[in-house]
């Protein structure tokens, strides 16, 4: 067997070139935390996250990311002065002409809007303002061959949102409270 050196062995060389070889004393060499600037682009693409962290490239970035996440994960993105009236974990489904699947999340009712927020992904699952709502009513519907109460929120544009939560009657009251404060 003869040793191979061709294009498909290039990657074997990369590990050597980027992580091995003679490295100079720190005060003589210009690099960012051990990785020369010149190679940054490539290293960033090829190296695993671990290696990057070992070199410290991402430490700054990572710290900022974590701080951001901490700050934003802690709370829900309430607007300044916005007051939460109710919160429930439940499922929701939109009806916009075609049926969509039930999804789960925390649903918040505030004095300004109703929304669901995904903490993990830090994004709104849905969000609407009282002005957009035409009517709220309780409906008996079938779910897994059993009848249950679902809260149907009809919007001005004729689409609907169905909610199912544990204390569905209380939740309906909370929503109605917000809606009524806007009707005045």
């Amino acid at each position: 067997m003869l040793p191979q050196r061709d294009t498909c062995t290039l990657v074997d060389l990369l590990d050597r070139l980027l992580e091995k070889g003679l490295v100079l004393r720190a005060d003589l060499i210009i690099t960012i935390a051990g990785v020369p600037l010149i190679g940054l682009n490539l290293v960033a693409t090829l190296a695993e996250m671990e290696t990057m962290l070992k070199y410290g490239i991402f430490e700054g970035l990572d710290k900022t990311t974590r701080e951001w996440a901490l700050e934003h994960n802690q709370g829900i993105p309430f607007m300044e002065g916005e007051k939460a009236l109710d919160k429930a974990y439940g499922s929701y489904r939109f009806d916009r002409g075609k049926k969509t699947a039930w999804k789960y999340g925390y649903i918040y009712v505030t004095d300004r809007r109703i929304f669901s927020w995904d903490k993990g992904l830090r994004r709104f699952l849905f969000e609407f303002r009282p002005e957009e709502v035409k009517a709220v009513k309780m409906e008996k519907r079938l779910y897994n061959e059993k009848e249950r109460d679902e809260l149907c929120i009809q919007f001005q544009d004729e689409t609907s949102l169905f909610l199912h939560v544990e204390r569905i009657r209380d939740f309906k009251k909370s929503i109605e409270t917000v809606l009524s404060s806007f009707e005045v």
Binding site: G21, L22, L24, I29, P36, L37
Partner: peptide, 19 residues
Amino acid sequence: VPFAFGTIIKGDDEVVSEW
């Protein structure tokens, strides 16, 4: 003795020679 990719020494030829 090979150097890692992207290794730069600060200074001119004289510094390299000193090193």
